[in-house]
Amino acid sequence: MDDPTPALRRRLQELPTISSPRSADEVLREARRRRTRRLAGPAAAIVTLAAAVLLVLRSEAPGLRTRGAALAPSVALSAAAEGPLGIRPLASGDALGADEAVVFRITTGGHGVLTLSRADGAPIWPLDGRPWIVGAGQHFLGGEPPLAWTPDTGPSGTHEVIATLCPEDGQAPSHCATAAFAVRWGP
């Protein structure tokens, strides 16, 4: 039988190539922008979390809610429990099984900086201080590392999680939108 390798090699090498439209200069700028962000990240995270805490303190009953100024992009938070038998839906306040991990779905109505935090303002995501910039759409967090929220994560009881979406241009916290979801575990 003929060795097909030379013909295959030739056909593969003749395939048209594509290039990234970004220039070397743009890549260099991107790398430098990230370095600056890494330095500025912790300060930005503190401001965002403070905004989240303020908005949560002003809210009423725990559970699913969405609020924010008229111009704020919308944000919604839902969740599912992922376990060895598959995924099942969770309603706010539902309990997580012992062998399950929670997966959050955050639906954003526009572009912005997204954070997930606990009711006391402690960050859940991101943890490295770098802003999580998103567009409109659905974003998933959890279920597997690096964010595996399971009943082993903290003490038993109800844990409220807040998603905050703020405009990227650093406007006042009143322009941020938030949504909350409660997950329960333990007896």
Partner: peptide, 27 residues
């Protein structure tokens, strides 16, 4: 640029993702 972008595009079957991989690689 073209070699990395083309490699990633053929592996991922998505052009935009391949361009991001090229940028990330050089970063």
């Amino acid at each position: 640029n073209a070699r990395i972008t083309s490699y990633a595009a053929r592996l991922l079957q998505r052009r935009e993702a391949a361009e991001d991989v090229c940028t990330e690689t050089f970063v």
